[in-house]
Design a protein around this nucleic acid. Structure first.
Lengths: 151, 151
DNA sequence: AAGATACCGTTTGTGTACAAACGTGCAAGC
DNA sequence: GCTTGCACGTTTGTACACAAACGGTATCTT
């Protein structure tokens, strides 16, 4: 170390070429973390963002196969299995073999699961609002539109 | 099922109040997932985004305590420990007790770690570019600025 | 000097997240 | 028929991510 790479003129300690804090991936991770923190505090019932995704999507679509539910909620097959296992253990979902297709495992909300979905939906909306609170209405719209292009 | 809840007029199957796909948290998770996929494919050396964050931050700042490094890279104390353990096992980092403060564990890049940092930096920049490729220059700037407000 | 307080690192436990390999069921083609 | 290919679910292994509890160290206050 010591002498710089290019001794051209004075020193000016060459801004490093890679600044972590300016990289989109790092920023995304932090924004996601902030959202997850808000979520954990505000969702009310004890649910993770991932579990809520599964529950609310089931409430939207009605019963569907575990695999399809995974695609609809952007979860890996191994991930959705774990999520459904835990939700089922808590009595929020139940599973049954699909009579029409021996490969499929049908997943549906139990009565308790439906109640949770209804009860938590307003909280989930509030969480979305709080996550976006630092932005004004126009900025929120712009952000969503831009992120949508990157999905 | 069958008859709807509110028989007022015609049917118009009441758009559910909570649409997962429109929620900022769900979108963030998906964009992050896409970025992680690009990262895994393009980083060259076998490093996770998190590990790269630690390595590149160490390259930026020089040796620092494990705890501070965790804060600089937005990692929990337990997370940064695991990351440094794995990097050290691979010979990219090394640790030593801080002679000036018995609580601290100093973390630094090894020679191999520095080489990895230099070699991977261009790839990491390319990954950022590819992640943002669906946007034009102005949009990229806007997105970063908006996300920055949500950190 | 002694005690209160804050900081640092470790450990344990739970929950995503994904790759890879495996076995089974369905459907399309010959 | 039968094979070939694809879809579906499961299991294993690795790696974040965070809460909570613990013990050791430094610093601040009295």
């Amino acid at each position: 170390m010591g002498r710089s790479v290019s001794p051209k003129r004075a020193v000016k300690p060459a801004r490093p070429s890679y600044i972590l804090d300016e990289q989109i991936g790092f920023v995304l991770r932090q924004v996601w973390q902030r959202h997850a923190t808000i979520f954990a505090r505000e969702i009310g019932i004890n649910l993770t963002p991932t579990q809520w995704a599964a529950v609310s999507k089931l409430a939207e679509t009605g019963p569907c196969s575990q695999n399809l539910l995974g695609r609809l909620t952007a979860m890996d097959v191994a991930t959705i299995k774990g999520v459904i296992d835990r939700l089922t253990a808590r009595g929020l979902t139940e599973t049954s073999p699909d009579p029409e297709d021996g490969r499929r495992l049908l997943v549906s909300l139990t009565r308790a699961g439906q109640q949770v979905a209804e009860k938590a939906a307003p909280n989930a909306l509030a969480i979305s609002r709080e996550t976006l609170a630092p932005l004004d209405a126009k900025e929120r719209e712009t952000l969503i539109a831009l992120l949508d292009k990157l999905r």
